[in-house]
Simulated scan of single mutants.
Amino acid sequence: MLPTNSCSSPTMSSPELKKVTVSLPKRLDRSSERWHHYLTIDLIWYVLGYTLFHPWTSWILVLCLRAQYTKYHAPEMKIAMAWAMLMSAIGIFHIFSERLAFGSPREVDLSDEVIVITGGVDGLGGLLAETYGMRNANVAVLDTKRVDDEEAEEKGVLYYQCDVSDAKQVEAVAAEIVEDLGPPTILINNAGIAHTKSILDTTAEEVEQTFRTNTLSHFTTLRIFLPYMLREGRGTIVTVSSVLGHLGAANLSAYSASKAALLALHHSLRAELAQNPAAQEIKTILVTPGQMSTKMFVGVTTPSNFLAPVISPAEIAKSLIRMIEKGDSGELAVPLYAQYIQILGALPVGMQAIIRRWSGVDTAIAKAGLVKKDTSEKQ
């Protein structure tokens, strides 16, 4: 008889299993927001862009009508065909317009690119750095905040403690980046600070600091990193501005002015690159986001979540990464109202005043309790 292995019976005495209480991370908890909180004009526009306003979907409707033996002279067939031709014409015009303005896209292979991100520890820059790091890209981050070597190795990112407002520090770090990773080919100018004070309470030092970090640092990084791109014959330069560069806002005068300067800098950069034969494969992207859910403006809300939703850095990062890797130039303005904010300046001044009051752009910082007072003597 073959020997049989005896198994312990469940009723037999055995050590009790240790009970472990598990709690889901807070981010996985069910949101307390109602369903309509997530219904925004951006979502509706996105869905329409892939359905009613998409040329392919429009022609599918025509084919469906023909499958039902609808006559070509029938009113519904005429309307469907007219709509499909209109959407196709708009789509073709958009393609030609983009190609005329920005030229052909360049080829991007992440294994051959060296990505430099300023202000890449937190917020949008941090998300971009970590995303590229997970994809084994060559990423160098310039930030005043220090990151432990263990954390940097885990994220696959090289962090250089550097104040981008100091040209000498940037020059020194640039030499290290070239030695460690190679010539930079993608520059994401993202570093920024804000002093939430009125003009009267803002000191000269704070204004200078804001412009050095938000604006002058772009001139510094361009002067240092652009020559490498010209020698490589390829590159992408991302300028992160803000919708406040078009609007301005109370208690954010220095921040708004520094971001407005970046709009002019971007267009000037594009004009100069267009005149340089060696810069044909250097692409430029202007990012003008609306209210983001970052630490810089925590607690700031918009008057209408439907028309002006607060966007997450992930939404911007996803679209920006797509543009960079497609090798495109262009402008990235989100949410939807940011794409048409310049129309506000063409409206009658009275209507502009009404819209500003309704939007709460000039009271948002105060309502969030972020306004800081300075009782020291002004310079």
Rank of each mutant, 00 (worst) to 15 (best):
L2M: 14
L263S: 02
A172H: 11
Q339H: 06
L158Y: 12
V238Y: 00
D166Q: 10
L65W: 02
G120W: 03
V116K: 00
S217C: 11
Q209D: 15
F306K: 00
V147K: 10
A308K: 00
S198C: 01
Q68F: 14
V20S: 12
S14Q: 13
A278H: 14
K283M: 01
E153R: 14
D180L: 12
G248R: 08
K71T: 08
T196S: 13
H246W: 05
V47C: 05
L273Y: 01
I237V: 07
K145H: 15
S319L: 13
E130L: 04
S319V: 11
E206H: 04
K372W: 12
A250M: 14
L65C: 06
I341R: 08
H37I: 01
V240E: 00
G327H: 04
V240A: 02
R212N: 15
E33P: 04
V300F: 08
A175F: 04
G126L: 06
I321C: 08
W83N: 09
L65H: 03
M229I: 03
S376P: 08
G119L: 00
I44G: 00
H195F: 08
E315S: 05
T284P: 05
L86F: 11
Q161L: 12
S9E: 12
T144M: 15
W358Q: 12
T302V: 08
V147N: 09
A152M: 06
W59I: 07
K378F: 14
T236W: 03
K26Y: 11
H218I: 02
G123D: 02
S293M: 11
W56F: 15
A194E: 00
T375V: 13
K283T: 02
M1D: 13
A172N: 13
E206T: 05
L128S: 05
Q209A: 13
